[in-house]
Amino acid sequence: MAAEAPNASEYIVHHLTHLTNKSQIAIIDMSVINFDTLFWSILMGLTGCIVMWSVARSVTSGVPGRFQAGVELLVEMVNEQARSIIPVEESRKFVAPLAMTVFVWVALMNSLDFLPVDLPSKILALTGLDHSIHFHRIVPTADLNGTLGMALGVLTLMIYYNIKIKHASGFIHELFCAPFGSHPLLWPANLLLNLIEYVAKTVSLGMRLFGNMYAGELIFMLIALLGATATWWGFGLHLVAGTVWAIFHILIVLLQAFIFMMLTLVYVGQAHEGH
């Protein structure tokens, strides 16, 4: 933090700057990497996976404990959705577990939004790490790289299953001959529409989650600014608005995780359908 108190826009900009290996100037720069996004996303992924793994290791088909019952509920929910969306069992063997991981992982990453927005920087300041770690954002899904990375993973899966189910020839035939028809004059239109469809699916999948979480984080910061006015009304509004928004955000966190999971399943399921 700067020695003197930052003004509101400096505060927001500071909170929205990633911890990177070097500051980024161009919109797209592949030599830059966001350490904070990666650190928290991997930590949350490991947490979710290890918790589920610990349940899976001690799982019993007899009377389940409460925690096991909870995880089983999740497994059953994802499995039911996968079964109704993806017709091929061989594909479900990978996509259903992936969908569950995505749900747990995204929910955990989104939940980092509930941590007070100033907590990470305060901890860094207290431990003296703020000299080397000046910027830090802890919500990986409020970083477009985090959500687009997962969306690209889903795109990869779509292409993989398209080729696996319809073979390369079938996939290419579909790219050129659907949806309008197989007349050669229609090929460019078909291809263009299909490309737009794939890009739109991927971008909307990543943008939807990113937008929700980014907006949520920004509103938390604005609410924190109310408290920063150091007045009674600011304190009261901070308390009330913070509480209301945090409760509403619980819904968004889980809903967005569920939507991401369902769209993963739906998009992979669509890759199994032939035209």
Binding site: Q24, A26, D29, I33, L144, N145, G149
Partner: peptide
């Protein structure tokens, strides 16, 4: 900004 993070993700 878009950067190498999304590949890693």
């Amino acid at each position: 900004y878009l950067n190498a993070t999304f590949i890693a993700q």
